[in-house]
Write a protein that binds this DNA or RNA. Structure first.
Length: 430
DNA sequence: TCTGGGGTCCTAGGACCC
DNA sequence: TCTGGGGTCCTAGGACCC
C-alpha cells in the first residue's frame, strides 16, 4: 500500500465535515487570549432576564453545566464566575471565511453549511495525502493559523461525515464507514440520526420504532405510508446511505428575517409600529448589503402562550426600502391581529429575494424620478452605519420613550447622528 | 426553568386561469 | 346552469437545523 490513491474508493466519494467547536466562544478566546483563554465563557443574546439565553458556551463553562439554550440566570447560578459576552457577528463571519479558505485549498468542492461548519468532497484530492492525512492537516492548520479548535468527520457521504464530526468533540477526528453503521448507530435512539427531530422521533416511537436499527429494518413501504416521501429517506439514512452531493456554489439566501422578543408584552399599536420600524430598518439594510430586492413581506406574531402566526403579502413590485416594508408590516398586522391582544414577539422576514440588477431591468426602476434619491439616501445611511455602528442613525419613530423602541443592543461607536445631519450630494450642489 | 433568533424545505389548500 | 382537469402562484404552518 504505497500509493495514496489506494486509500480512496474506486467508486463513491470521500467527504469531510468540518465542525468548529464552540465557535463563537473560541473566536473570542483566539482574539483576546489574555482575557478569555480557558475561562468559563458564554455568548448570550442579551443579559436581560427574560431574553437572556445562552447562545453558546466554552468547554470550560460546559464542564460546569452551562448549556446552550439555558437561561443566563440559571447559568450564573451554576457558574458564578461565568464571563458573558455579546455576540459579534462581523468578527465571526471574518473567522468563518478564514477557516473555509483553508479547507478550500484542499478541494474547491466545498459547501458552507452555516457560519461554523462545512462539507468538502476530497475524492479527487489524493495529491494532498490520504483522506485521514488531509483531515488531520486541515485540523492542525485551523488550530495553528487561527487558534480555533474543530472536529472533523471522514465518511463516504455527507450524512455520515456530519455524524462522525459530532462523535468526538472538541478536536475530534472520526472516520465513519458504511460498514461501521450497524455497530455504531443502530443501538442509538432515532433522534440521534441527523434529520430526525423530536416530532419524528415521537411518531416513530408510537410505531414501536425507537432505535436507528429498528428503523433500518422497517419496511420502506410502511415508512412511506406513515411519513410520505420522507419514508424513503428514513429507510436509506438509517442504513447509512446518502447520495446528496457536495454543492460547491453557495446558494444565495432565500430569505432575510429578524424577530425580537419584547422586554414586556405589548398591546398598543403604536408600540407595535415602532418595533416594526426598527425591524424593517434592519432587514432592509441587510437586503441592500446583499444587493437584493424582496417581493414578499412576511410578519410573525407570537402571543404570550407561544402561539405563533405568520402573515405574508406579495408585492406588485419588489422593494428594498424600510419605509415600504414598515408600512406593509403594519398593514398586515392591523388586518390580522385583534387590537389589544397581547404580543410577546414580533418579526419581519423578506422573501422572494432577487438580485437587484435583474429586478431593476425588469421593472425599469431607473425610470422613476424618486428612486435614485431614495437609493442615494439609503447608501449614505448604510455607509455611516458601517463606519459608526448600527445605532448611529435612528429615524424619528425609533426615538420613542418606550423601551421596546430600542431593541438594538449594539454599542455606538463615535457620536450619534441625527437625520438632519445628512445631506445628499445633489442637495449640496443646489 | 416556561422556552432566542436566523434560516431552509416541505405540504396543503385556495385562488385563479385556461 | 353546471361542469373537468391541469398548472401556477400565494399563503400559512410545521418540522428541522445551527
Amino acid at each position: 500500500m504505497n500509493n495514496r490513491s489506494d486509500y480512496y474508493p474506486k467508486k463513491g466519494r470521500v467527504i469531510l465535515h468540518i465542525d468548529m467547536n464552540a465557535f463563537y466562544c473560541s473566536v473570542h478566546e483566539a482574539v483576546e487570549p489574555a482575557l478569555y483563554q480557558n475561562k468559563p465563557l458564554a455568548v448570550a443574546g442579551s443579559v436581560e432576564l427574560r431574553k437572556g439565553i445562552i447562545v453558546t458556551s466554552s468547554y470550560t463553562a460546559r464542564s460546569q453545566g452551562v448549556k446552550t439554550g439555558m437561561q443566563v440566570r440559571q447559568a450564573l447560578k451554576l457558574c458564578p464566575d461565568l464571563v458573558l459576552l455579546r455576540p459579534d457577528f462581523d468578527l465571526y463571519r471574518q473567522f468563518s471565511r478564514r477557516f473555509m479558505n483553508i479547507v478550500y485549498e484542499y478541494s474547491p468542492l466545498m459547501q458552507a453549511m452555516s457560519i461554523d461548519e462545512c462539507f468538502v468532497d476530497i475524492t479527487g484530492s489524493s495529491q494532498f495525502g490520504t483522506p485521514l492525512e488531509i483531515a488531520s492537516q486541515i485540523q492542525v492548520r485551523i488550530k495553528e493559523e487561527l487558534g480555533l479548535p474543530c472536529s472533523v468527520g471522514v465518511a463516504p457521504n455527507k450524512l455520515l461525515a456530519k455524524m462522525a464530526s459530532d462523535m468526538k468533540k472538541p478536536n475530534g477526528l472520526t472516520v465513519l464507514r458504511k460498514r461501521d453503521v450497524p455497530q455504531l448507530l443502530w443501538d442509538k435512539p432515532c433522534s440521534y440520526l441527523y434529520g430526525i427531530g423530536n416530532r419524528t422521533a415521537e411518531k416513530l416511537s408510537k410505531l414501536n420504532i425507537t432505535t436507528i436499527g429498528q428503523l433500518a429494518a422497517a419496511e420502506e413501504s410502511f415508512l412511506i405510508k406513515e411519513f410520505g416521501v420522507n419514508g424513503s429517506w428514513l429507510k436509506l439514512a438509517s442504513n447509512g446511505i446518502d447520495e446528496a452531493p457536495v454543492l460547491e456554489e453557495r446558494e444565495p439566501s432565500k430569505s432575510i428575517g429578524h424577530t425580537t422578543t419584547l422586554p414586556q408584552d405589548v398591546t398598543l399599536f403604536s408600540d407595535v409600529s415602532r418595533v416594526f420600524l426598527n425591524l424593517a430598518d434592519q432587514v432592509a439594510r441587510r437586503l441592500r448589503r446583499q444587493q437584493f430586492v424582496s417581493g414578499t413581506i412576511q410578519i410573525t406574531i407570537r402571543d404570550p402562550a407561544m402561539k405563533t402566526i405568520s402573515r405574508a403579502l406579495t408585492l406588485s413590485a419588489p422593494t428594498e426600502n424600510a419605509d415600504e416594508i414598515h408600512k406593509i408590516a403594519c398593514g398586515l398586522f392591523s388586518k390580522h391581529w385583534k387590537e389589544g391582544k397581547p404580543i410577546r414577539l414580533l418579526g419581519i422576514t423578506l422573501q422572494s429575494l432577487q438580485p437587484k440588477q435583474t429586478a431593476a431591468i425588469q421593472l425599469d426602476l431607473f425610470d422613476y424620478v424618486e428612486k435614485p434619491r431614495k437609493e442615494q439616501l439609503n447608501k449614505t445611511m448604510d455607509k455611516i452605519r458601517d463606519k459608526y455602528g448600527e445605532s448611529a442613525i435612528l429615524t424619528a419613530g425609533m426615538l420613542g420613550d418606550d423601551p421596546s423602541a430600542l431593541i438594538r443592543n449594539h454599542k455606538v461607536r463615535g457620536t450619534s447622528l441625527q437625520m438632519d445631519h445628512l445631506r445628499l450630494p445633489q442637495e449640496e450642489e443646489e
